[in-house]
Design a protein around this nucleic acid. Structure first.
Lengths: 229, 229
DNA sequence: CGTGCTCTTTGCGCTTGCGCAAACAAGTCC
DNA sequence: GGACTTGTTTGCGCAAGCGCAAAGAGCACG
């Protein structure tokens, strides 16, 4: 694990926030660095939580199948984000499946190692707590959105979230591309991809977005924000 | 704070799990004990997280209003449960409002004290992490239910959850009563209370439940479980 | 004991979003 | 280039659940 100290700064809001040199080193030394090809799965829903991951580069999709077999995409996880934290810290089977949507490089910790580190370094525990808390808050937000907001508002929210997380700037606006399909948006919004397509088409007619295959360009984010309410 | 050691044993799966005598005492000594009348609010959504609560007796309702003004009931919190943990541990404004649905007795900690305790006693941090993780898991579950399952399945789940949490045994089955109204069930399920009433009426016709004002008696839990899928 | 309040039920019309089928792109692999 | 795969769009009919209105049922209070 020979990674420069600066690289820790990338990991804002994660396990590495505000650590002294020694603690950060202990954390880094306990990790292994791994490359993963697109399409490989990090873990399956229901697996024992044996490893914790931090995305360094690439993109991981977290999805979940409910008892009746239908898929839900919980979210995408990009650089700096901790994949599997809820399960590992709680020693509970993974509630979702994690698949690399793009080739990824990851930091990996064994469950027992990371629990030990947490126990030994209070600042790490504090960071873990904040990360898990953030996840909880995010899900609370989604629960209220799902039960209170209409489809358009939810989809607008998903689009904005995706734009800020996996979007790239393009001349016309922020571009959401490749691994994210209409289907993903549908699963994140809790509707069918037919509905997503229809709503997006309507927005294209209003010049709010521009569409293409595996491509949505957000032209007027503020109008989306307004729709998301 | 003169509470007998046994009383800690009640608080299974909470901050007090598996603590040695000294740590548990420190935790208890830092807390104040408070009584609250029915209808009083512990905190409002958006408030700075200045206090953490543990319900000792009574029942607290956690609800949230979304941007468009509609209410969502996140859950009820009964004896042993930590109210406000996500916000306090993360030092983020309360994402919901907490109101006493029944007269309550509570243990209260100031935010800074509890954060200090967490920092000083790793086992407490570990418990906090588990509690928040549990909340996150619960919300993940609800997100997938909301986006994948139909209304009946969701309502069946809510009913079972309520039965096990606030239900009392009665000759005919488990009885969900007083502070819980159809409206609450509706907000927990993400539907209107009209729909709740209609579905419950249908179930009553099938002898799955018996209904009354502010009262649902679950006669056949296994059939609900089956509907909940 | 009636009045008022809150919670609940039910009927009816209607909107929203789903389900399916079919057609249409845009790559990709021989 | 042609066949195939995968993702997307669109039309049409349908069903689930909403919204409103109106009425019923407990319960509390004077």
């Amino acid at each position: 694990m020979n990674q420069s100290p600066q690289s820790m700064r990338v990991c804002e809001g994660s396990l590495f926030s505000d650590l002294d040199r020694e603690t950060a080193d202990a954390l880094l030394n306990a990790a292994t660095y791994r490359q993963i090809a697109e399409g490989m799965t990090l873990f399956h829903q229901g697996d024992a939580p044996s490893q914790l991951f931090q995305v360094v580069t690439g993109l991981v999709k977290l999805s979940r199948v409910s008892t009746d077999g239908s898929q839900t995409t919980l979210r995408f996880m990009g650089p700096g984000e901790l994949v599997g934290c809820v399960a590992v810290f709680q020693q509970f089977p993974f509630p979702a499946t994690a698949i690399a949507s793009k080739p990824c490089s990851l930091l990996c910790w064994g469950a027992s190692q990371i629990l030990d580190l947490i126990h030994r370094y209070p600042p790490v525990a504090s960071n873990a707590l904040k990360t898990v808390g953030g996840r909880a808050r995010e899900m609370i937000e989604r629960v209220t959105d799902l039960s209170a907001k209409g489809v358009e508002a939810r989809l607008a929210g998903v689009l904005l979230r995706l734009a800020s997380q996996v979007g790239r700037n393009s001349p016309d606006g922020v571009e959401i591309t490749h691994p994210v399909t209409r289907n993903d948006m549908a699963e994140m919004t809790g509707v069918t991809y037919f509905t997503v397509s229809r709503v997006l088409s309507a927005w294209q007619r209003q010049q709010i977005v521009r569409l293409g295959r595996e491509r949505v360009i957000v032209i007027e984010p503020h109008r989306l924000a307004q729709i998301a309410d």
